[in-house]
């Protein structure tokens, strides 16, 4: 119990396990036109952790995730208030380099979205748009990224075949490799396994376990067991509010808020 209490205090006072935060979200409000979707969200992301965002459909968790690399900019009529500090600098501040932000804060989507190109060209896409032309360096990046995403052995003999010929699980690992190829610091994942079968899902989960040694991961998931299996901390969203954030075992065993308890015990959602 003492251990639990300590962990809870750590979470409550935003004291990082290693003491270092990479993202600090402050009083974040988001509007789609006139409709407000996020209400005053305060949340820190610690270096090297896996942070899971859970909550019922439409609670704003995916919307929140997309504010972290400014992907909501692509949607018309989205207005954002508050700050997202990345190493202390507001990514919504003036003069911020959107390209650098998205390069260093990568994103994996719900449905695998390989480009209709070869496996090689999918991985090399990011490095190429950032100006790497040298074939040898690209070869190295492709091999390294695919190895990190645990896909190299399966595709090394058909790098120039279409990526669309891969299975759903392989496609999702390809997309992860594509993100890793641009050397991100943070990887955002938006329900990355919801379109996959159980075996592919467990491979992705294993992969996340390996990736957290090098990258900070923020993952939205519908699946509470998944959050419990893979994450260090869990944040619970409801109706656009961040209700509670705590180390994962704490949140699932001794939730502080009534809403959290109702959700994790399956009373709604």
């Amino acid at each position: 119990m003492a251990e639990l209490k300590e962990a809870r205090d750590a979470a409550r006072y935003h004291i990082a396990p290693e003491g270092k935060t990479v993202l600090n979200v402050r009083r974040l409000n988001l509007f789609y036109g006139k409709k407000q979707a996020l209400f005053g969200v305060d949340l820190d992301v610690y270096k090297g952790e896996v942070l899971a965002l859970i909550g019922p459909s439409g609670c704003g968790k995916s919307t929140f995730l997309r504010t972290l690399n400014r992907l909501n900019d692509l949607i018309d009529g989205v207005r954002i208030e508050g700050e997202v500090l990345w190493h202390g600098e507001n990514i919504y501040g003036e003069g911020q380099d959107l390209i650098e932000i998205r390069k260093r804060i990568g994103m994996v989507f719900q449905r695998p979205n390989p480009f209709p190109l070869s496996i090689y060209d999918n991985i090399a896409y990011g490095p190429r748009i950032h100006g790497i032309k040298d074939r040898k360096r690209l070869d190295e990046i492709v091999e390294r990224s695919l190895t990190q995403a645990a896909l190299w052995d399966e595709v090394k003999d058909r790098l120039h075949a279409s990526a669309l010929g891969l299975s759903g699980g392989q496609q999702q690992r390809l997309v992860i490799a594509r993100v890793l190829a641009v050397e991100p610091e943070i990887v955002l994942m938006d329900e990355p396994t919801s379109a996959l079968d159980p075996i592919s899902t467990s491979r992705i989960e294993e992969l996340i376990g390996m990736l957290k040694k090098r990258y900070t991961i923020v993952i939205v998931t519908h699946n509470m067991q998944q959050a419990a299996r893979i994450s260090d901390r869990t944040a619970f969203f409801l109706n656009g509010y961040l209700i509670e954030v705590a180390p994962t075992p704490v949140l699932f065993q001794t939730p502080q808020k009534k809403e959290t308890e109702d959700y994790i015990t399956g009373r709604f959602g």
Binding site: E100, G106, N113, F115, I129, H130, V182
Partner: peptide, 11 residues
Amino acid sequence: EIKAGSYALGA
């Protein structure tokens, strides 16, 4: 989704 994938890589 494919376009979003490209933008999310910083394109």
